[in-house]
Design a protein around this nucleic acid. Sequence first.
DNA 1: TATTCTGTAACAAGAAGGGTAACAAAAGCA
DNA 2: TGCTTTTGTTACCCTTCTTGTTACAGAATA
Lengths: 148, 148
Amino acid sequence: MSTSSRFAVAVHVLTLMAWSKDEPLKSEQVAESVNTNPVVIRRILCELAHFGLVVSQTGSMGGTKLARQPNEITLLDIHQAVESRGVFSLHRQPPNRDCPVGVNIETVLGDVLGEVNSAVDHVLAKITIEDLALRLQPCVSTAEKARH
Amino acid sequence: MSTSSRFAVAVHVLTLMAWSKDEPLKSEQVAESVNTNPVVIRRILCELAHFGLVVSQTGSMGGTKLARQPNEITLLDIHQAVESRGVFSLHRQPPNRDCPVGVNIETVLGDVLGEVNSAVDHVLAKITIEDLALRLQPCVSTAEKARH
DNA sequence: TATTCTGTAACAAGAAGGGTAACAAAAGCA
DNA sequence: TGCTTTTGTTACCCTTCTTGTTACAGAATA
């Protein structure tokens, strides 16, 4: 599996921003919700900004907010922004080129990887940040009720 | 992405065994094709054996061969045998439970992960070792021709 | 019994991710 | 202008995961 949690954190952050509407959030506030260090958040925010998913503002009263509407940001956008590599890796060392299997297995496996990645992308492309915010809503309502 | 190459190596190994029909292969021979150490191969072979995909035999004239026909071994079988975890990870540290987003994001993300993993499994389940061996065939034939 | 394998443990080396501190640059404010 | 706040970015350490390697017990065969 992906050993990194960047995708999960990025989705968390953007959902948070959809939640807070147009008010810019500081990396400090976001880090508190994600339970990590502000620099970790800024690193991810920076990648998201390069992909045009968020806009940041330095200085006091600064912070970061969504660059588009929540229904215009898909999980595929986010995945491409923060996880450069696909889902699987091939061989670390190239196989033996003198073996009929070894010399061609990478090509064949590459095709399989392509199919897998397409399937993943297809799922992620159908889900937007707005969807996640809506899925979150009932949970939050329940939590609110429980508090009373 | 998966930082490990176990899946790629496992597929390579099983394709090699499909290629060599019923003749048992030694970890030494396999390692040569994969271009790695025999112990690395034996480790993976051991996991595959536990899942009933291969059978091994100790002693001289020993080795490992497929436990089923190549068309009865899917990439999903292999993936489940050697990559215990799914495709994505969630947060490393649990998010802040005092935040309405933080307290529920893992549940929502877990659902998404489920959808993604299902899609991956569906692709892998449709491809067998026999398919890969057949896809390999034309490449090998071309290579043979080029040699003359 | 000697040989040839697998199964498995132990350990070193390397890579990747994440936490942390530090600092320049930008933006707002007195 | 000078101070404060916040982002953007770098550098470094620590932990975890994977792989390479050596070593050795146990099983199978001649």
